[in-house]
Lab assay of single mutants.
Amino acid sequence: MEVRTIKVFTTVDNINLHTQVVDMSMTYGQQFGPTYLDGADVTKIKPHNSHEGKTFYVLPNDDTLRVEAFEYYHTTDPSFLGRYMSALNHTKKWKYPQVNGLTSIKWADNNCYLATALLTLQQIELKFNPPALQDAYYRARAGEAANFCALILAYCNKTVGELGDVRETMSYLFQHANLDSCKRVLNVVCKTCGQQQTTLKGVEAVMYMGTLSYEQFKKGVQIPCTCGKQATKYLVQQESPFVMMSAPPAQYELKHGTFTCASEYTGNYQCGHYKHITSKETLYCIDGALLTKSSEYKGPITDVFYKENSYTTTIK
C-alpha cells in the first residue's frame, strides 16, 4: 500500500517557510505537534488534498525554529505562539472599519479597549522592536488589523473576551517599542525636605499616572512627601515624541487643539466601556464603527496623549 502524501510549508514567522512532505494517514499533531492554519487549530486533523502548498504555523520545537521565533517575536515564552494563534482565530472574524481616516474595530468580545489602543497607536510616533509587531502594525494602518490585535493580546497575556485596560495595554506595548531616546527629568520640591531631581528613561519617561493635564504637570502637581507634608512635583525636561497622561476616570474637559487623542471610560472596574476622542479640525468621538463630532467635550476621561518633541522648564 502506497503512502499518500502532500507537500506543505511549516513556519513560526510566515517569513521562513520549511518544506514538509506530510503523510495523509496521520494527523498534523502526530507529525508536527500543535499546528495552526489561519489561526485555526488543526492539530487533530489529517492532511487533505486542499492543504497542498498551504502554510501551517507550528510551535518552535527545534533550534532553527526557536531562533526564527525569537528573532521575529522577541520572546522565548513557549506558550506565546499558541496564544497568538488562538487569538487570531477570533480577531480574523472582527470587522476593521476605516473611521475618520483611522483603522478602528467594530465592537465584539469586549474589544473596546483594543480599538482605543489601536486608534491611539496610529496617532503617536512609535516604532516597535519585534519585527512581528512592526509588520502587523503597518498592515493594521492599511486596514488589516487582525494579526496586530492578536499579537497585542498575546504580548499582554490576554484572551479574547476578557476586559482590558488601555493604560495597561499601552504599557505592555511600550515595553516592546523603541523608547531608548526618551528621557524625563522631574523635580520634587518640599518646604521641609528641599528639592530632589529624578531622571527617568524609556517607558517611565512617557507615562504618568495622577493627572490628565500635561500643562498642569509642567506647572506642578501636589504629591505627598515622605515627611508627610505636601510637596510639588513638576516637569523639568521632556525628550520624547509623545507623552501619555493618565488618571482614574473623572469628568474632564478636553479643549480642541490642546491634545492629540484621549480615552474615555464609562462604567466601573468590573464592567465598563471605552471610547476614543481625537482632536482634528474639530473633536471626534470614535466608538467602534461609530463616529460623532463636537466642538467641545466633557466626560469621564482616563488617558490623554500629547505630541511632544523637546521641553525644558522655565521655572527657576
Score class of each variant (00 low, 15 high):
273 H>M: 00
144 E>L: 07
164 G>Q: 03
45 I>P: 06
51 H>Q: 10
287 D>C: 00
256 H>K: 14
25 S>W: 10
85 M>G: 05
304 V>L: 04
257 G>Y: 01
260 T>F: 07
53 G>P: 04
12 V>H: 07
34 P>A: 10
33 G>R: 05
49 N>L: 14
77 D>I: 03
142 A>L: 13
248 P>L: 15
304 V>P: 01
137 Y>W: 08
41 D>W: 05
192 T>C: 10
236 V>P: 02
45 I>Q: 15
52 E>G: 12
209 M>I: 15
36 Y>K: 01
233 K>A: 13
80 F>P: 03
281 E>V: 03
184 R>Q: 07
40 A>P: 07
2 E>P: 11
84 Y>S: 03
238 Q>L: 01
217 F>A: 15
275 K>A: 12
150 A>T: 03
9 F>N: 13
196 Q>M: 12
296 E>D: 15
200 L>K: 11
312 T>G: 09
177 A>G: 06
135 D>S: 09
234 Y>T: 10
190 C>K: 01
270 Q>M: 08
239 E>P: 01
206 V>P: 01
33 G>L: 04
12 V>W: 07
131 P>V: 04
58 V>E: 05
82 G>E: 14
158 K>A: 06
307 K>S: 14
204 E>A: 11
75 T>K: 09
118 L>M: 08
159 T>A: 15
94 W>A: 01
312 T>L: 14
28 Y>A: 05
63 D>W: 06
142 A>I: 12
80 F>T: 04
141 R>A: 10
85 M>K: 07
275 K>L: 05
69 A>N: 03
249 P>H: 03
198 T>I: 15
282 T>P: 00
27 T>M: 13
89 N>D: 11
78 P>Y: 09
240 S>G: 06
29 G>F: 09
292 T>L: 09
282 T>E: 13
116 T>P: 05
253 E>V: 09
306 Y>A: 00
287 D>N: 03
19 T>Y: 12
179 L>K: 08
50 S>F: 11
48 H>A: 14
309 N>S: 12
71 E>N: 09
36 Y>S: 05
117 A>F: 01
92 K>T: 10
28 Y>N: 02
81 L>G: 07
96 Y>S: 04
64 T>A: 13
73 Y>K: 04
49 N>D: 15
46 K>C: 12
142 A>T: 15
164 G>L: 01
280 K>Q: 14
127 K>W: 06
255 K>P: 07
79 S>V: 10
195 Q>I: 13
43 T>F: 10
53 G>M: 14
